[in-house]
C-alpha cells in the first residue's frame, strides 16, 4: 500500500514539477525506465513468491537503472549505442514478460 502511494507521489511529482533533465542524461531516460520496470516487476513477483526482501529490491532497483544507463553510455562511447540499447531493451523486455507471466499465474491461478 505504502509502495503504491509512493509510486503515485513520484508520478505526480514527475508530471507536475517537471524537473529539468540534463541534456547529457536524456538518452538514458527511456532505458532507465525499462530497467526500473524490470526491477519493480521482479519485486512484485518475489512478493507473490513469498521471498520479497526490502533490501534486495532497493539494491536491485538502483543497480538495474545504473547498469542499464552505464551499458548504453558505454555503447555511445563505442559508437554502438543504438544497438546496445536495443539489446538491453530486449533482455529486460523478456524478463519483464516472464515476471508478468509469473505474477499472472499467482493472481489468476492460471
Amino acid at each position: 500500500m505504502i509502495a503504491i502511494i509512493g509510486l503515485l507521489i513520484g508520478v505526480l511529482a514527475g508530471l507536475f514539477l517537471e524537473p529539468t533533465v540534463p541534456l547529457a542524461l536524456q538518452p538514458y531516460l527511456p532505458i532507465a525506465v525499462v530497467a526500473a520496470l524490470d526491477a519493480v516487476f521482479g519485486g512484485v513477483r518475489a512478493h507473490f513468491d513469498g521471498i520479497f526482501d526490502d533490501k534486495v529490491f532497493v539494491i536491485s532497483f538502483f543497480s538495474n537503472v545504473l547498469i542499464a544507463a552505464l551499458i548504453v553510455y558505454l555503447g555511445d562511447q563505442l559508437g554502438v549505442g543504438g544497438q546496445l540499447s536495443t539489446g538491453v531493451v530486449v533482455v529486460l523486455g523478456i524478463r519483464i514478460f516472464s515476471n508478468v507471466a509469473a505474477i499472472r499465474r499467482h493472481v489468476f491461478h492460471a
Binding site: 505504502i2 509512493g6 509510486l7 513520484g10 514527475g14 508530471l15 526500473a36 526491477a39 529490491f57 532497493v58
Partner: peptide
Amino acid sequence: PRSGWSNRAGIVAAVTAFGVLVGVSAVK
C-alpha cells in the same frame, strides 16, 4: 528483524524514484 521503517523508506524511495522516472519520461 530487519523489516523496519528504514527499509520501508528504502522501498518508498525506490518506488518514488520509479514514479519520477516514468513521470519525467512521459513529460519529456
